[in-house]
Design a protein around this nucleic acid. Structure first.
Length: 105
DNA sequence: GGAATGACGATAA
DNA sequence: ATTATCGCCATTC
């Protein structure tokens, strides 16, 4: 099914998700914003089709909602990574990560 | 080309 | 805090 509309876009998304460190998360919008290509829906679409081999559980909705269909799985993993959370949701205010955030010395 | 869909986001009530 | 609606962007039928 070669639905690779933009292999480059897929690579960029997966590559970025791989860069998300443990205990941190990025929202679909943040990823789309960083890449500057498409929108949050496109990032989510890529994840649903090619987000298998990457730490998808570190990608959450802007409101901290975990990945639909894998809420339990994602929650378990965050518990292992000590991700800052508020009940069933991730505390984006504390766990929100950005590539530049790691450059800060 | 047009309508419907989707791992989203923001706003209104 | 929760539910409902509109907007965004590209894919799919």
């Amino acid at each position: 099914m070669v639905v690779l509309v933009d292999e480059e876009f897929v690579e960029a998304v997966l590559s970025l998700v791989e860069r998300i460190p443990p205990g941190r998360v990025m929202s679909y919008g943040a990823i789309a914003e960083y890449l500057g290509r498409g929108g949050p829906r496109q990032v989510g679409a890529v994840m649903s089709h090619y987000g298998g081999p990457v730490p998808w559980h570190r990608v959450v909705a802007a409101n901290g909602r975990l990945v639909p269909g894998h809420e339990v799985e994602a929650t378990k993993r965050h518990r292992r990574e000590k991700t800052p959370m508020k009940g069933e949701r991730v505390d984006i205010a504390r766990a929100g990560w950005w590539p530049d955030a790691d450059l800060n010395g």
